[in-house]
């Protein structure tokens, strides 16, 4: 069992942290200031036993003009997961890189750069394409990316193909001259 109040108090002494919220007995989320995230995560790893990084991802809070980055950490001994969340400006999405903390962080940051357009200066190969080689459009995982509009503008229908209304087409081709249908 993890004493969340004590954990938050311990973090509050060192870093600018917000509220800690408990989702389940083995899962909690901690808000943290953007500036303090790399140090706070390193502290959690080295002193609180959160040695395993499950993932890094981003939630687009379009209505608040914010990106919410989530670092999911796992404590094997206390059997507890802690999601460290931080909010960054959506118009200028830059976040401090943590590629020295865990080996996989550089890959996660590469994906966030590609899918959300969040820059991590100094992260190795962050601007190298990950899953979307030769992608020219805007970052596709953003909420305001309109998939339908993009595909209509980018991919044109093959010439010679036309679209019919199924009912009308059947009448015309299968039952020509039948007025009662």
């Amino acid at each position: 069992m993890v004493d969340l109040k004590a954990l938050r108090a311990e973090m509050d002494k060192r870093y600018q942290v917000g509220e800690i919220s408990e989702q389940r007995a083995d899962l909690a989320f901690l808000d943290c200031d953007k500036i303090d995230v790399p140090d706070a995560v390193a502290y959690l790893r080295d002193h609180e036993g959160y040695v395993h990084l499950s993932f890094i991802t981003c939630v687009d809070r379009l209505e608040d003009e914010l990106f919410e980055i989530v670092y999911m950490l796992r404590n094997h001994e206390k059997k507890h997961d802690l999601g460290v969340k931080t909010k960054i400006d959506r118009k200028n999405p830059v976040m401090d890189s943590m590629h020295n903390h865990w080996a996989a962080v550089a890959t996660y940051q590469r994906e966030l750069y590609e899918m959300f357009g969040i820059d991590f200066p100094g992260s190795p190969g962050v601007n190298r394409p990950f899953a979307l080689e030769s992608w020219a459009g805007p970052p596709p995982m953003r909420r305001d990316f309109d998939t339908k509009k993009y595909s209509e503008e980018t991919y044109f229908p093959r010439p010679g193909r036309e679209t019919h209304d199924p009912a009308e087409h059947m009448k015309k081709t299968q039952y020509p001259g039948r007025a009662d249908l």
Binding site: Q23, R24, L27, F29, S54, F55, T57, V59, V70, M72, D81, G83
Partner: peptide, 20 residues
Amino acid sequence: AGETYLSAECTRGEYGYYIV
């Protein structure tokens, strides 16, 4: 409204879903 993370042990290791 809410968020959760669930994980399970698949043959390759930790498989998880984070849902908001």
